[in-house]
Every structure is written in structure tokens, then in C-alpha cells.
Write a protein that binds this DNA or RNA. Structure first.
Length: 601
RNA sequence: GGCCGAGUGGCGCAAUUGGUUAGCGUACCAGACUGUCGAUCUGGUGGUCGCGGGUUCGAAUCCCGUCUCGGUCGCCA
């Protein structure tokens, strides 16, 4: 190594030693007769001093600029006590430079990289290599590494084998859109990049691999979000002879170790559990943020016969009316504020939001009040738990719209009123998801998780004679599945799998996948199930989201070294991009659409 | 695909809501300075207000179209 120490290493114990550092120029402060340069590397900053008594060194220093790479040699000096810099871990020393060498110069950088920089994402992505130099980014990737390393350690101790599965696979046109890779050898045929290693990991169980895991890249060609990238990383695992409790214990252990190793946070298992039905009932969604309380209450039965048509009409038509109570907020929200909340939820199709305040003294205030008897209002308040000083907010619509809207409103309220601490980590297992969900688009029931999910044992007999038609009983059938939710974010999804080829066939037929079709798509898999399949279960936490949560981001691009933008482009490399005609000819591919001319990369 | 927000020197933002020569911070360049640490001080360079069209005596500002970026809904088994 051309250095003897790193820029984060020297302390006053090193005073008097002759050392060599190498790093980037973070900052230069020229006082004429003395100059200070903060030299930066992955490990920290060290102040180096160029003094007039070595005038040739000082002269050289005048030409140095930010982001140049220097190698400096000199003596470590303890600073006079009144010149300690408590903001720097190396702030008690400085390096008195005897000689230095410019290893590499830098052009003027296109955006500032210091800790105060407010550069926008577009410029950061385009010059990601500069962005990555920032201490914050360096920390992000250190945390990510440590968390993953901790997971690998736990999995090793628990006897899991890390096994790789193919990236070039077969398209199984269920679920998300696939990324396709054309075959040069088989013209007109395509590999698909894995949406997850799902089928392979189950086959590993059939193959007796017992305990498998992998830090796996997954690919889904769908529209992106702050927490969704076209390629992302899952901590994928599968266990034979396991029950949900076994999976929960492993993951709780992994999360505890990952959060401890990553950010030093104490996360204790066992995590709280809540079934899907309760989550929807109490929070309106399957990923409740349990850092704060504020449950929904259904009041449909209390308002079926009231003068307030908005409620009674919805109740009569089979909709629901639910309420959300904002404790102690009566004074802080004006009529205008409350009416403005409609903006927050109208994206879910909410037509309006009704509200009633309970004033000090118990008087009700709000537009709907005049349509109710006092006793009715008292009953509603009793049901929702609202008391003096509170605001009751109501939604009346289909269950779907009411739940979505109030869940969004609840999260918004928690944020506005600071009902939780940002660094509080509240995990919860959501269990027993419905096995099927109705697809309006395809006008049929589809798997809500994936078609290999085991039915809930208590609901097994409901599969007999079931039919895939609207209004049928499929919606009520539960699965043995579970999500891990952290602070309102879905971190992982998993289930017990079907290990019986007959049940698997029954599920396929219920899903409207014919025998021939099933054979064509998953024939190898159905065959595999026929040769002695152990019961097995698994789960797959999202690594990007997990690390983002640790660091307090809601944007996973901050914890991915080279992420893509909202249009799935890599602004640094310019991918995706056109290719040579020859490449296309080799693959027997022709462009049918005129390519949009792209902005210069 | 829908909706919302944004686009102004290299970067981050402003422009009293249509009014004179488009400002501020920072970066950059030059100079000064022997203890700074987001150094300071003095001076300076740098802008086709994303692009195209329209309204107007006059447009960064209003209208139409278009492109780009972000958020979100749909979508994401």
C-alpha cells in the first residue's frame, strides 16, 4: 500500500510518528503563510498542514484543487488543545507535511460533494462515481454490507446453504412482466430473467437441499416507484419440513442481527402477529404502521338508519362506513384544513371525507351533526373511542375505497402529528392472506401471492367443489402465507408451499390454467412434485428496502450503487441503448417500432 | 396510461404573480492573509429562463403543444 494509515485512523497516540496518507482533497484553506487541506478517504478526514517553513511544499499546495488525489508524507502533530476540532474524529491531530505528490488531478466537479450539498438526483445519478464519494453514501454501502454479512453469518450458523439459481430462465407468464433475453442459438426463443428464484428454490427442496438461501437479484419489468427498481435484491430462503413459526424465528434472528450489525439498533423478536383480516379491519391495509395506535372503527350498523344520506345510502347499498379518530386535535384543525384532507385521499376514488369534532364540554361540531340524534352521536363516539377534544373522520363507500383512503389518511396523520419516532422499528407479521383475489381486468380469481401457496388448513375443505366465478366463495379462502411489515412497509413475503401434486393440480385448474397449459408452463415443476416432495416453506425479504429503512430513507435508490431512474434508465451508462444491426441479425430480431431518438447520454 | 409537482449561470434556489439591465448562495478564476476547519476579505468570469408555437406595447411569469426529472394511482403472482 502506498499509504501507512487511512484518513480516519490517526489519533493523538500517533503524535510524533512519520506517516503517509493518500486520499482526495475535500477542502483547502489557504492563509498565505499556512495552508490546511482536509484529505478524505473511505475512513474519514484528516487535516494536513502546509507551512511556510517548507516553502516549496506550500508553493505546490497553492495549485491543488478539490477532488485531486494526493499522497502526503509527514509527521503527526497533536494540535494545541484550543485547536481541537470536535467535529472530526481525527480532530485532535494534524499532519505536518514534509512532502506530497499529486497522484491524480480532477476537473472542476459538476456538483458539490460535501455534506451540505443539495445536488438533485439527476445530476447525482449521471455522475454517480462522484456521488458515491460522499461520506453519506459510503456509510450507506457499509451499512448494507454489514447487514448482509450478518444475515450470511446467521444463515451459516443455522445450517443453510447459499446456492445460486439461474439468471437465464424460462418465462412463466404469471405475475409481473418479464425481462426477456433472446437466444442466438434458438431463433425466436427467449430466456426470461427471474422475477424471483421461486420455482428453483422449491425444486432445491425436492432435491433434498433442505435449507437454502441466496442474496438474489430479481427482475420485474413494471413501472417504478421510490421503493421499486426493475432489478432489486431479495434475501431469498426456503426450508424443508418447516412450519411458519420456524421461518419466523429464522427471520427474526436475521433482522435482529442485521439491524444490530448495520446500525446498532436493538430489534427484539418474537415480532407481533396479526392476521390479514384484523389488519384490514383495524388499519385498512395489509401493511399497517404500528409505531402509532389510531385504529379504524366500523360504524356501518350505527348509521343504517340516520338522516345523513351520505351514510345511510352507502350502508343500504352494501358499502361500509368507517371512522378514524384524531386524538386531541380538535383545536388544531380548522374546517378548511379538514376539508383539504380530501386531496390526500381522492387518488383512491374517495368522494369526500366527513368529520365531526367533539368540543370541550362534549358538544358535537361538523356538517353531519344536524342529521343525527344526540344518542346516535354518543353511540358513534363510544364505538370509535372519541372523547372531548378529538376529531372523528368518516368515510362511506365500498370497503375497498374506505380502507384504502383511511389507511392513507392514517399514515398522513401519523406523519403530520409526529405520532412516532423515525428510528423506532416496529415489526409485525401479517398472516393468513386470502389465497385468491378477484381480477377485474381478467374477470376471474387469481392467486394473490403465487399459485404454489398452500391453502390454510382450516379452509382446506372449501376447495372441494369450488368454482372460479364472480361472487363464488374463493374470496373467503385463506392461505398459509405471511408478510413481514416494518413501519408500514412490506419487507418480506412468504408462505408454506404446496408439496402435493394433486393439490397443486387442483389450484391450477381453479385458476383456469388448463392441464396442457400447466404442463407447458410448469410441467417440470409439477413432475418434480410427484417424486417425493418434502413439505416446505420460505420467505424473501427485500434487501434494498430493509437497508433503506435502517438508514431512514423511503427511496431505495440511496442504497443501490447504480440504480435506474423512473423510466428504468441508467443515467450514467445510458442504458438501455440501441445495438448494432449485426447483433440483432445474430438474434433474428428486427425492430418493428421506430426507435425514439434519445437525448444524448 | 392517468393525476400532481418541478425544469432559470456548473450546482442549489429567487424574481413583489405580465413591467426597466433576470437576482442570491455556492462552485469557478484572480488577488490578499501564519491557525483555519462550511475559513475570511477584495475583485471578476459565467444565463437563448428545457424546447417549439401563440396571446400582448411588453412573457421566466399567461395559453397550447412537446421533452426531461420526481412523486403517486393503475400495475408490481
Amino acid at each position: 500500500m502506498i499509504r501507512t494509515h487511512t484518513c480516519g485512523e490517526l489519533r493523538k497516540e500517533h503524535a510524533g510518528q512519520e506517516v503517509t496518507l493518500a486520499g482526495w482533497v475535500q477542502n483547502r484553506r489557504d492563509h498565505g503563510g499556512v495552508m490546511f487541506i482536509d484529505l478524505r478517504d473511505r475512513y474519514g478526514l484528516t487535516q494536513i498542514k502546509l507551512d511556510l517553513d517548507k516553502s516549496e511544499v506550500l508553493e505546490l499546495g497553492q495549485h491543488v484543487r478539490n477532488e485531486w488525489v494526493l499522497k502526503v508524507t509527514g509527521k503527526v502533530l497533536e494540535r494545541p488543545e484550543d485547536m481541537y476540532n470536535p467535529k472530526m474524529i481525527t480532530g485532535q491531530i494534524e499532519l505536518d507535511v514534509d512532502s506530497f505528490e499529486v497522484i491524480s488531478r480532477s476537473e472542476v466537479i459538476p456538483f458539490e460533494t460535501d455534506e451540505y450539498s443539495k445536488a438533485g438526483e439527476e445530476i447525482r445519478m449521471r455522475y454517480r462515481y462522484l456521488d458515491l464519494r460522499r461520506p453519506q453514501m459510503q456509510r450507506n454501502f457499509e451499512v448494507r454490507h454489514k447487514a448482509i454479512a450478518a444475515i450470511r453469518k446467521v444463515m451459516d450458523e443455522q445450517g443453510f446453504l447459499e446456492i445460486e439459481t439461474p439468471i437465464l430462465g424460462k418465462s412463466t407468464p404469471e405475475g409481473a412482466r418479464d425481462y426477456l433475453v433472446p437466444s442466438r442459438v434458438h431463433h425466436g426463443e427467449y430466456y426470461a430473467l427471474p422475477q424471483s428464484p421461486q420455482i428453483f428454490k422449491q425444486i432445491l427442496m425436492v432435491g433434498g437441499c433442505d435449507r437454502y438461501y441466496q442474496i438474489a437479484r430479481c427482475f420485474r419489468d413494471e413501472d417504478l416507484r421510490a421503493d421499486r427498481q426493475p432489478e432489486f435484491t431479495q434475501f431469498d430462503l426456503e426450508m424443508s419440513f418447516a412450519e411458519p413459526d420456524d421461518i419466523f424465528a429464522i427471520i427474526e434472528n436475521c433482522m435482529a442481527e442485521a439491524f444490530k450489525a448495520g446500525i446498532g439498533a436493538e430489534v427484539k423478536g418474537p415480532f407481533e402477529r396479526m392476521d390479514y383480516a384484523a389488519a384490514i379491519r383495524d388499519y385498512g391495509c395489509d401493511k399497517p404502521d404500528l409505531r402509532f395506535d389510531m385504529k379504524l372503527s366500523e360504524i356501518t350498523d350505527l348509521v343504517t338508519e340516520c338522516g345523513f344520506k351520505v351514510f345511510s345510502a352507502v350502508a343500504a347499498s352494501g358499502g361500509v362506513i368507517k371512522a378514524l379518530v384524531a386524538k386531541g386535535c380538535q383545536e388544531n384543525y380548522s374546517r378548511k384544513d379538514l376539508d383539504g384532507l380530501h386531496e390526500v385521499i381522492k387518488c383512491h376514488g374517495a368522494k369526500g371525507l366527513a368529520w365531526i369534532k367533539i368540543l370541550p364540554g362534549g358538544e358535537y361540531n361538523g356538517a353531519p351533526v344536524k342529521f343525527f340524534e344526540k344518542e346516535q352521536l354518543d353511540a358513534i363516539a363510544a364505538r370509535t373511542g372519541a372523547t372531548e377534544g378529538d376529531i372523528m373522520m368518516f368515510m362511506a363507500d365500498t370497503a375497498h375505497i374506505v380502507n384504502n383512503s383511511l389507511a392513507t389518511l392514517r399514515n398522513k396523520w401519523g406523519e403530520m402529528e409526529n405520532l412516532y419516532k423515525k428510528d423506532d422499528f416496529h415489526f409485525v407479521w401479517i398472516t393468513d392472506f386470502p389465497l385468491f383475489e378477484w381480477s377485474e381486468e381478467h374477470n376471474r380469481w387469481e392467486s394473490s401471492h403465487h399459485p404454489f401457496t398452500m391453502i390454510h388448513p382450516e379452509d382446506a375443505d372449501q376447495l372441494l367443489g369450488a368454482e372460479n366465478k364472480k361472487g363464488g366463495n374463493l374470496g373467503g379462502i385463506r392461505s398459509t402465507s405471511y408478510d413481514l411489515v416494518l413501519n408500514g412497509v412490506e419487507l418480506a413475503s412468504g408462505s408454506v408451499r404446496i408439496h402435493d401434486s394433486e393439490i397443486q393440480a387442483k389450484i391450477f385448474s381453479l385458476l383456469g390454467i388448463s392441464e396442457e397449459e400447466a404442463k407447458e408452463r410448469f410441467g417440470f415443476f409439477i413432475d418434480a412434485l410427484k417424486y417425493g416432495t418434502p413439505p416446505h416453506a420460505g420467505i424473501a425479504p427485500g434487501v434494498d428496502r430493509m437497508v433503506a429503512m435502517m438508514l431512514g430513507y423511503d427511496n431505495i435508490r440511496e442504497v443501490i450503487a447504480f440504480p435506474k431512474n423512473q423510466k428504468a434508465m441508467d443515467l450514467m451508462t445510458g442504458a438501455p441503448a440501441g445495438v448494432d444491426e449485426k447483433q440483432l441479425r445474430d438474434l433474428a430480431i428486427q425492430n418493428v417500432a421506430i426507435q425514439q431518438p434519445k437525448k444524448d447520454a
